[in-house]
Design a protein around this nucleic acid. Structure first.
Length: 635
RNA sequence: GGGCCCGUAGCUCAGCUUGGAUAGAGCAGCACCCUUCUAAGGUGAUGGUCGCGGGUUCAAAUCCCGCCGGGCCCGCCA
């Protein structure tokens, strides 16, 4: 496995520093880790890499940072990728051998192509990413879309870091929301029309309005919900059937956004598979549970939280010292089902599920499977790590989940559950409440994921149709679609997950700078250059590399050398915005290069610049793909 | 009462995990650049008490403590 050019340069700088330090201060050992830690990118005008090691040694050596840095520089002998060592204000600055470094970067990209930027960090460990788990009784609104896009991108990024990723979508077909919708379908007397999830979501809003006037409906629905919970009752079949229709419609949205999953897990299958009983018996055997016969929690099964006190601050002084897992009426709470589900995810409970295909062919070409009453056994679950893409609101519930594993003695597992808590999406002056219908919006524009795509596509098509660069007009709608998808995805993913988002049509419809279309545009421009030049990849000679100018040419090469480190960072932090930031830097640097540096008319530098253009294209494409965004050849 | 997240330019955001050199982008506004590889672009100028106050440190947007403002949670809802 190749290590990243950036790391290679850093390693060589460390070696140079280490031997200089040994010569200058033989008595004082400095570890490689310390040196690695001290190195960062140099500020513009100070070379390429900087070490702040003199500052951390100052006290120990009882010398000023300036003095130390000078001693290091005079003892240093640059070699390999490091062409020069200098000193400024206590920093030790290194300059890279431009030709050698660019050669390293360009040949790595030429060699690895679509695999350039990928890492081995995950070593094939299995990770389950769960999301978006939208209730199966309404269409996706833009908040669900944020969840789905984060999940999709994080899955891609983890896969790029050599994790074996399984994408699971949990379907809560037994919730009160489905009961309400089912009641509506039975009693409102409306016939389905249009996209089923949209229609069902509207019924749900109507039911909630009706409930405000007629309190008795709530009781009927509660009874309906209890019947649904008992496996193989007519009501449970009806609910599953209704939810199934809705999920199929929701997966049309999935497909239009180019998102795929591996498996649907239905809450009703968790119940009929007796996961809960198995989970409770495991917890009982660890002595974690209580079954009070009197008092507030009479006839419940509860999880006392005293033992969780050391696990997190939240449990030190809680309002409620106990979490109910099974209610006095015998039904399970959400947290109980989630604990059971996670025991299955980690393979602590033998797999009771049967599986069958739900959608034969998704955007990624793979089949979507579902848990079901009939079907075959398969290899799902048994993960080493779990990433749950779930809103910030559920932080406390996710914490109890982790604490439960910790209390059961599975500390490793508790540490391997990652809750990616993302901030809520709201709209200007309102919320996206499913119940109240905030997502329906007004004036013909709704806040569903479907409607967003339609609107953005319309705007993209207007612009695309004006473009003179698109020779084949039949391709216009295809291009507009790619641009619209890119714009939407980028706009969500560029914001750090934990931030709240207030949706704005103005920003959603802006395709300039800080956007996917900007990155896609630089790709299309590059593509045109290579076409015009009838570019064929070739090995560059020493004299080609000698043509390189530090500004623009080398800056670009240097940034291209960071791709692998960026992918690794995005993966370890579960932050797609690390990728969007990098892409913007790259597109910006390329745009400057494009303005400043003639490529085809670049004379002696033509070969080198063509290679740089091709390399930038490849890296842009690879990184956009991690966000689920595809490129177009012209726009 | 307790806990979690956020607060950086008029607006939308990076940077904070691991403290280091003049705090970076984009949008809006101002002045420019298409006979030259796609102007969805580029250049320049303008715009900042990094919420406030302490502390630690040679060095704080970054770490610690305390406030203030916004959001969320602490259910036999999911």
């Amino acid at each position: 496995m190749t290590i990243s050019p950036n790391k290679q340069a850093k390693d060589e700088f460390i070696k140079v520093l280490a031997s200089a330090l040994k010569a200058a201060y033989p008595q004082d050992a400095v570890t490689g880790d310390q040196l690695a830690f001290s190195i960062s990118k140099a500020k513009p005008g100070f070379g390429d890499l900087s070490s702040a090691i003199s500052f951390s040694l100052a006290k120990r050596l009882n010398k000023s940072p300036l003095e130390i840095s000078r001693s290091i520089v005079s003892a240093a002998s640059p070699s390999g990728l490091i062409s020069n060592i200098g000193e400024a204000a206590g920093y030790v600055n290194a300059r890279l051998n431009e030709s050698e470094y660019a050669r390293l970067v360009i040949s790595a990209i030429n060699e690895r192509k679509e695999f350039y930027g990928l890492t081995q960090t995950g070593h094939g460990k299995k990770v389950i990413v769960e999301g978006p788990s939208v209730n199966p009784n309404k269409p996706w609104h833009i908040g669900h879309l944020r969840n789905a896009l984060l999940g999709d991108s994080i899955s891609n990024i983890l896969a790029a870091n050599a994790y074996n990723v399984e994408r699971i979508d949990y379907i809560d077909d037994l919730g009160l929301q489905v009961a309400e919708s089912l009641w509506g379908v039975k009693h409102l007397g409306n016939a389905p029309e249009g996209k089923f999830d949209q229609w069902l979501g509207e019924q749900y809003v109507l039911v909630n309005k009706k409930m405000e006037d007629d309190k008795s409906i709530a009781n009927e629905i509660k009874m309906l919900n209890e019947k649904m919970e008992s496996p193989s009752s007519p009501e449970s079949d009806e609910a599953r059937d209704l939810a199934g229709k809705c999920v199929r419609a929701q997966y049309e949205t999935n497909a239009s956004y180019g998102i795929s999953h591996d498996l649907l897990v239905w809450e009703s299958d968790i119940v009929s598979g007796k996961l809960l009983e198995k989970a409770l018996s495991i917890m009982d055997s660890k002595g974690m549970l209580e079954k009070p016969v009197e008092g507030k929690y009479a006839n419940c099964i509860t999880l006392p939280l005293e033992k969780a006190k050391g696990f997190a601050k939240e449990f030190e002084n809680p309002a409620e010292e106990t979490k109910v897992l099974v209610r006095s009426n015998g039904t399970a709470t959400y947290v109980a089902k989630d604990i059971a589900f996670h025991m299955w995810k980690f393979g602590l409970i033998a797999d009771p599920f049967a599986y069958e295909p739900f959608i034969e062919k998704q955007p990624n070409g793979k089949t979507l499977y579902t848990t079901s009453a009939s079907g075959v056994a398969a290899l799902f679950g048994k993960a080493d790590m779990i990433v749950n893409i779930i809103g910030m609101k559920q932080s406390y519930a996710q914490l109890i989940l982790k604490a439960a594993f910790s209390m059961a003695g599975y500390g490793d597992i508790a540490n391997n559950i990652v809750h990616l808590a993302y901030g809520e999406v709201s709209i200007e002056g309102g919320s996206l409440s499913g119940r109240k219908g905030g997502w329906i919006g007004g004036e013909g524009r709704s806040y569903t994921a479907d409607s967003l795509l339609t609107e953005v596509r319309k705007k993209a098509l207007e612009i695309v149709e004006k473009s003179e660069k698109i020779e084949d007009k039949r391709k216009s709608s295809e291009i507009a679609n790619a641009v619209a998808l890119g714009a939407i995805k980028f706009e969500f993913l560029r914001i750090a997950p934990e931030k709240q988002v207030t949706f704005s049509w103005e920003r959603a419809l802006n395709f300039e700078s800080n956007s996917a279309p900007y990155c896609m545009y630089t790709y299309a421009r590059s593509k045109r250059i290579l076409e015009r030049a009838a570019y064929m990849p070739t090995e560059l000679s020493d004299s080609d590399y000698k043509q390189m100018q530090r500004e623009a040419d080398f800056d670009l090469a240097k940034l291209l050398g960071d791709a692998q480190d960026i992918v690794e960072k995005a993966g370890s932090e579960y932050r797609p915005n690390v990728i969007t930031d990098y892409l913007l830097d790259l597109a910006m640097l390329f745009s400057r290069f494009y303005e400043k540096m003639p490529v085809i008319k670049g004379g002696g530098a033509k070969n080198l610049r063509l290679s740089l253009v091709a390399a930038t294209m490849q890296v842009t494409k690879n990184m956009l793909l991690l966000l689920g965004i595809s490129t177009v050849d012209s726009m």
